[in-house]
Nucleic acid binder design. Structure first.
Length: 114
DNA sequence: CGTATGACGAGCC
DNA sequence: AGGCTCGCCATAC
């Protein structure tokens, strides 16, 4: 599973490149969890990295970061509460329904990567 | 180069 | 049933 072999300068952007790519694969109207994404990105067990990747996500990157939620199906705490509210708005806009408690039913909207 | 921190998760008390 | 701690590892200072 060598991800890079010499002359690989991809790491200049950080190791989040892979994570962003997986997130970009989440279909519209669907959500995924940090752990699930980490797993798909080959970082099984490192959900934290995914979270940091989202934080480092540059604006206008086109990455649907708002489709990434925690394992409980909820939007995790954010340094900027305004973000969380926007995230929920974006998901509802895509058709995702939030249940009582502001949690999404992962059994129904969760995307594991077909 | 060492320490601290952090969009999380799972386990333990 | 709910809350706290530890683990994982990249980025910042």
């Amino acid at each position: 599973m060598q991800r890079r072999v010499s002359t690989g300068k991809r790491s200049s952007e950080g190791s989040y490149q892979v994570i962003w790519r997986v997130v970009a694969c989440i279909p519209r109207g669907r959500v995924s969890t940090y752990a699930a994404i980490a797993r798909m990105a080959g970082l099984q067990g490192r959900a934290r990295m995914v979270g940091y990747a989202m934080h480092s996500l540059p604006e206008g990157s086109g990455i649907p970061w708002h489709r990434v939620i925690n394992s409980r199906g909820g939007i995790s705490a954010h340094p900027d509460p305004l973000f969380g509210q926007m995230q929920r708005g974006l998901l509802e806009q895509e058709g995702v329904v939030f249940g009582p408690g502001g949690l999404v039913d992962l059994e129904r909207w969760g995307w594991l990567g077909e």
